[in-house]
Structures are given as structure tokens and as C-alpha cells.
């Protein structure tokens, strides 16, 4: 399973970088979405994949029963997804505004601030 996931992560990174390098801003944002997902999946995979119950301690016990999944990795990914969601929502609003101002979906039209 880990090997398969490693390939998926690799493909995601590759696709993301390809998309980011395109001239179109919409594709740039798609690339960023893929990139953040690739990073999340990498975090998930490298923390180790176990098939287990939710890590909750039953009433009266001091340790969880049976095999449990690592809660920390899941907490991290949840946080990362939330952050990614917020940032990408902003990016979408940004390209929309930029499109209205510049009237083009082309990075080559956005050279005003280059030096």
C-alpha cells in the first residue's frame, strides 16, 4: 500500500509542477491545489499506514483496545487541509480579481511589476 501511495504522491507532485509552469493562471491555481494535496498525502503516507480503530480510550480503560491508527498524523493532515483550503479559497478570489483587472488569463500579460 505504501509503495502504491508513494507513486501516487510522485505523480501528484509531477502534475502539480507541470501545471504551475503553464502560462494560464487558472492552471497555475490547479497546480497549487494539486501541490498542496501531494504534500498532504506525503505526510499521510510517511507517517505510516495502519488499519485500525479510532484512537479512543474506552470508558474505564487507560489504553485504547486493539490496533489504533496514529491520531497525530491525521490531526496534522486535517490542519493542513484546512489551511490549504483557506489559502486556496483566497487564491481563487485573487485570480478572479486579477482577471477582472488585467483582462487576461496569461502570465505573460502580467509583467508590470517585473524588473
Amino acid at each position: 500500500m505504501e509503495t502504491l501511495m508513494a507513486f501516487v504522491v510522485g505523480v501528484l507532485y509531477a502534475t502539480a509542477i507541470y501545471m504551475i509552469l503553464r502560462r494560464s493562471i487558472v492552471k497555475l491555481v490547479i497546480g497549487l491545489v494539486l501541490l498542496s494535496n501531494a504534500a498532504n498525502l506525503l505526510l499521510f503516507t510517511s507517517a505510516g499506514m495502519t488499519r485500525g480503530a479510532p484512537p479512543l480510550v474506552p470508558q474505564g480503560a487507560t489504553v485504547p483496545a486493539g490496533v489504533v491508527a496514529d491520531p497525530l498524523a491525521q490531526a496534522l493532515i486535517l490542519t493542513a487541509i484546512v489551511i490549504g483550503f483557506g489559502v486556496l479559497a483566497f487564491a481563487v478570489v485573487l485570480i478572479r480579481r486579477a482577471y477582472e483587472v488585467v483582462q487576461a488569463d496569461d502570465m505573460n500579460q502580467m509583467k508590470d511589476t517585473d524588473t
Binding site: L32, L42, T45, A73
Partner: peptide
């Protein structure tokens, strides 16, 4: 900055795995 954040997160992932 998002590219940099993704790298940062990937590094954390690998580090946590290690």
C-alpha cells in the same frame, strides 16, 4: 510562498515519518 509552504509541509511529513 505556496510552493515554499508545500515544501515545508513535505519536509515535516518526511521528518515525522523518520
Amino acid at each position: 510562498n505556496l510552493v515554499s509552504s508545500a515544501m515545508f509541509l513535505s519536509a515535516i511529513g518526511l521528518l515525522y515519518g523518520l
